[in-house]
Amino acid sequence: MPINYYIFLSLALFAIGIVGVLIRRNAIIVFMCIEIMLNAANLLLVAFSKMHHLQQAATQASAGTDGQIFVFFIMVVAAAEVSVGLAIIVMMFRNVHSIDINFLNRLKH
């Protein structure tokens, strides 16, 4: 499949993630949407890695490895982020008995 298709697929997933962040007030759903966006980026990285590999394979056998390594690191960061984020949500729920992000309006002060 041409690279364009992957680009459009990723963009669509990313846009869905953004819309999700914007329209939902549940903090956990918002988190999930962020995961969708991260995965859209991952998918694109892998697709580009493959494209790169196909172009450079003749001269360099390991071309395109970097992209996949990056995806790996993004997963690492996402896992860390989720653990901290969920901890925050738990604590927020413990304090205000809600996970509505509109309660997080202390930023005004």
Binding site: I18, L22, R25, L104, N105
Partner: peptide, 14 residues
Amino acid sequence: LQSGQVGNYVLLMV
């Protein structure tokens, strides 16, 4: 604009 609502900030960011 400075509502303190995270959602609004995200919208503006987008």
